[in-house]
Simulated scan of single mutants.
Amino acid sequence: MMTGTSASSPSYQSEQIEALLAKSGWAGAQRRHLAGDASLRTFETVAEGGRNAVLMRWPFTGNQVPDAVRSYMTRVHLAQDCRSVLAIGQELRAHGFRAPEVFAADIEAGLILSEDLGRTTLVEHGRPVEERYHAAAKLLARLHGEAWPEVVKISGNTSYQVPVYTSEALIAEASLFLDWYYPELAGEAAPQEVRTEFEALWKKALSSIRSAETGWVLRDFHSPNLLWQPAAAEADRIGLIDFQDTVIGPVAYDAASLFLDARTDISVELESALRNAYVACRVDQNANFDVTSFDRAYGVMALQRITKILGIFVRLARRDNKPGYLGHLPRMQGYLQRVLDSGAVPDLKEWYLRYAR
């Protein structure tokens, strides 16, 4: 037993990292902090002898995550240990998708050392590169044409159950709008009657797409997590990362994530072109692909994601002291208006016109 340090202390985790690197042939590697995402995870680049890797540190142990945060993660099925990364990545690679190869992992310590797929995304100089987005749309169609398991066996007796993206989880996510964005606009907490109406309308909207196609939803299928591989063959030109929160739900959700990318401006024309490219691929896979059902689900999922992200960006700015996320709000507000104007969500449109301005 170790003495003088706790299992959650930085010094203890550093010892675990060094042990993992030594055991996997990366002893003495140079480590540098890598700018992470909006989650609680942290990342480092690891370099040794001309090789490069990425070390993910998953600090969701002990008392490091407040009870309220962990409760929310549970409600919306966010992964709470690194088994999800191993399981989802393993299955993606088995189906021929470019997910980072795992070099070493310590599940108990929350550490994964994996292939470094670079930093080039679908965006250059702040603008979407259409060729890359079309490749991503086709890849997404290919992913949605596959059959995916509910349980993934990782190794030995270790397995991972892919959660179901329930209506309760989708509404809880959308309610971040009420928790954070509404007060930002109104200067006061959302009244209970506003919240009650919001939840009732969302239950009805989600019920209306109950028959929509479901499958694996990677959940953040957008430019920061789609890494362009210029030297790769066409099928491998996009590397997939940040898929740990994969759920089983309406596949149109990931289409909305890509076609209305939260991190760059997607024009109406590009959104339409990407939708058409995706649908054409799905029809090629299956002549009976239900385009009408997809479009209906796309409208609802697009509104849900936009609603959620408006709340998340304000939360990141106000609670987590990351004010840069406020710069994305005008884009999301524009997307919100676009979806409302499309007529895809008529029952919700009036509510948003009243409370989202």
Rank of each mutant, 00 (worst) to 15 (best):
S342Y: 12
S175N: 03
P191I: 05
E131H: 07
Q30W: 01
R305A: 03
R93A: 05
L40D: 07
L113N: 11
T307Q: 03
A256M: 15
S223N: 11
Y278W: 06
Y335P: 01
E124C: 09
P323C: 06
Q30S: 11
K349E: 07
F313A: 01
H144Q: 14
A35W: 00
G118R: 04
L270M: 15
G4Y: 10
A35K: 01
T158E: 15
I112M: 08
I209N: 00
F221E: 09
I266M: 15
R296N: 05
F259M: 07
G110R: 11
K153C: 08
Y325K: 11
T74M: 02
I107K: 14
M56W: 06
T3C: 00
F294D: 12
A7T: 07
A47C: 11
V339W: 09
Q333F: 04
K23P: 08
F198S: 00
D116I: 14
N276L: 07
T121G: 12
G4E: 12
E146K: 04
D220T: 10
V268F: 14
G156R: 02
P149M: 04
V46C: 03
L206A: 13
A255W: 08
F294A: 14
E271C: 11
R315I: 03
W180F: 07
G36C: 12
G36E: 10
G156A: 01
R237K: 09
A147E: 15
I112D: 01
S11I: 13
A79I: 08
L176Q: 02
R357N: 12
P191F: 11
Q90P: 04
S24G: 13
L316T: 08
R57W: 04
F43E: 11
H33C: 00
I88K: 02
L226D: 05
Y72H: 08
P323D: 06
P323N: 06
S207C: 10
P10C: 14
I238W: 02
T42K: 03
D254L: 07
E115N: 03
S223D: 09
L270Y: 07
A137W: 05
P66M: 13
F177C: 12
R305H: 01
R282H: 08
A38Q: 03
R142F: 02
K153Y: 01
R57H: 14
R41N: 10
V268M: 13
Q30C: 10
